[in-house]
Design a binder for these strands. Structure first.
Lengths: 361, 361
DNA sequence: TTGTATGCGTTATCAG
DNA sequence: CTGATAACGCATACAA
């Protein structure tokens, strides 16, 4: 097979069917009108020749491309890959395809990918914006006529549909439940980096979902009598080492901190491992709630209590909104909040007044 | 913003820069030759106008599209999403983009997706073929000049590069290790469906990786004295219920079966849960080895021994081969076998002669 | 070095 | 209903 790239065109089919190019194009493209006889002839010729339409050329002509660009933080993360599956399933039903890219949660890459996708003339964009304050590239996309829907996050500067979890509400629910159980000081652990490892100004948190949760966390903690709730927010849990350090710091505050909230399931897993490795048992020595109902949360003993983020649904809804925009819906931009309920399993329990824990160094 | 899709063209830039369309195209496209003055004028005009090249049109002209199609069984599965990340990273470095689809491990969908991607005139295809015996659509793609690389699987009917794990070898290694430990009868559990729930002819197994492993499994078991090793292969573990049934059947053969091999990490997790729920402790009551080093295998107690399939590397290698083919490499098709070593953690132990286990019904 | 003219495979317009 | 023919935006052979 000499691998020539020259496929057949409507002209070839037309010739074989003994009709004009225009007629062949009409029946093959499924538009306009053609007589039964012509239609049969063309279809038959196309069949025997093995004609494959060229969607590139079609898009060029029509200006529409059947491609939707998706930009996520990390496709390896089940949080996103599940969302992508939701997007993919909905899109397919609308005869749209999905071109996907990773931003690695870096603004520069996100900007680059938007540019690439725009050059490909995607019909629309679904993005989990890395930084809510830096969305000019997305605004430009919208301005030039490419609809955008944001996933899991939103930006006040962006008037587009957004599909988010109920970040504030779920934090409130979890903390309320924990308070009820007797917990007074709870730690919030996030992968987000800050310059000095301490929580800075809330406005400086780029990922809106994270900001919402921390904001809600601080408010709730303050309401229940904690004077400096910012001290309970631990940032930079981006790998095993930093997470181990954080766990050490949390345990050093023992016994005052009696519960931990993990901002995503990767962090949750690392914290759980650290805790087990140090011989602590859950929930007696420490309560733990992780965001995202990941696979691993069901094989531990006890199973992990989680804030269930149904990201497959996030994805479905986002795709749905985009499709609707593509069809011409020009109602005002809207934010869709998907419920993210606390699923209580085995890691929420009453705190026990325990003495200082032995910390290996 | 009234959302008009009409972006600027080279012609607009040319006009603004007071040069011909061809000159503008040359500097914007980065080919051919242009004087410094012309180049500066064009670039400046493009900048101020906000020109964005149209990759669709470019692809039409050149015949090349910067898109690579990827078809996996299920993007939600970490096995594949990790591979996709590997593909994505390598592709990006070569200025290629990734358009992704799910086959849901169904041949009909795979065929459909290949067709869709071919219509989009993708530069190449990376596919995890669902059925090694039904690859005409892939052969056709190759014949028409679109290079194909298969991922994790291969087909004897397909003369294309393939990147696979060492399926036979890893089975041998695991069984050898288990035998050494004293295990004589080992169960192999797979999601693959068979008509009657029993293992049929090996040739009827569509997914090559699965076939290789089972084939190796049967050979090894027979070698070590098991007369009817097919009885040790349990198929159809596709959800919680069916997996529970299988575990029941395995335990019913107790105490002769003393170890279980899980063909993928989803099955592994389900089996682990079943075993724990029934109060068995690993590895005393049962040894367990799962394919794929998934997150969950590190949070259990004990941690799960796994056959580590580095699918990120699978993906990287596959993308690498495709890029190479795209660059014109026409050496004979080759299969690249990536090592998939046994990572021993806590679930391999000596079998204990135990009495019948209580099985709840 | 630059410009002119033509082609890529469709869709779409407008007479026949 | 059908058939020429002109776009679409870019690349490129060839002429200047």
């Amino acid at each position: 097979m000499s691998g020539k790239k020259s496929s057949l065109t409507v002209a070839d089919v037309a010739r074989a069917a003994k009709v004009s190019k225009a007629t062949a194009a009409r029946v093959l493209g499924g538009y306009g009108i053609a007589s039964e006889t012509a239609r049969k002839a063309v279809l038959e010729a196309a069949e025997t020749l093995g004609y494959q339409p060229n969607d590139l050329a079609r898009s060029m002509s029509t200006g529409r491309s059947g491609l939707v660009g998706v930009i996520v933080g990390d496709i390896e993360n089940a949080f996103f890959s599940q969302a992508v599956r939701g997007i993919s399933d909905r899109l397919r039903a609308a005869d749209l395809n999905l071109i996907i890219s990773n931003s690695s949660e870096r603004l520069s890459e996100e900007i680059e990918m938007v540019s690439v996708l725009l050059r490909q003339r995607v019909a629309g964009l679904i993005v989990a914006p890395t930084d809510a304050r830096r969305v000019d590239h997305l605004k430009a996309a919208v301005a030039s006529g490419t609809p955008v829907v944001t996933l899991d996050r939103r930006s006040p500067d962006l008037e587009v549909d957004a599909v988010c979890g109920d970040d504030r509400g779920s934090v409130a629910q979890v903390l309320h439940r924990l308070h009820e159980e007797g917990h007074r000081r709870v730690a919030y652990v996030t992968a987000m980096m800050t310059a000095d490892g301490r929580l800075g100004k809330l406005e400086d948190i780029g990922i809106s979902a994270v900001r919402e949760r921390i904001s809600s966390f601080l408010a709730q903690m303050r309401d229940t009598g904690v004077e400096t709730p910012a001290d309970l927010v631990f940032t930079g849990a981006s790998d095993d080492g930093s997470t181990a350090d954080i766990v050490t710091r949390i345990l050093a505050q023992s016994p005052s901190i009696t519960a931990i909230l993990a901002s995503d399931s990767l962090i949750g897993a690392r914290i759980f491992r650290e805790l087990s490795d140090r011989g602590l048992s859950l929930p007696q020595d420490m309560s733990l709630v992780s965001w995202f109902d990941a696979d691993w949360t069901r094989v531990t003993s006890p199973r992990i209590s989680v804030v269930d983020q149904p990201t497959y649904q996030f994805g479905q809804k986002a795709a749905e909104r985009l499709i609707s925009r593509l069809k011409g819906d020009d109602s005002p931009a809207q934010t869709f909040v998907v419920a993210t309920p606390l699923v209580e399993r085995g890691t929420i329990g009453a705190p026990k007044g325990r003495g200082p824990v032995e910390i290996p160094d």
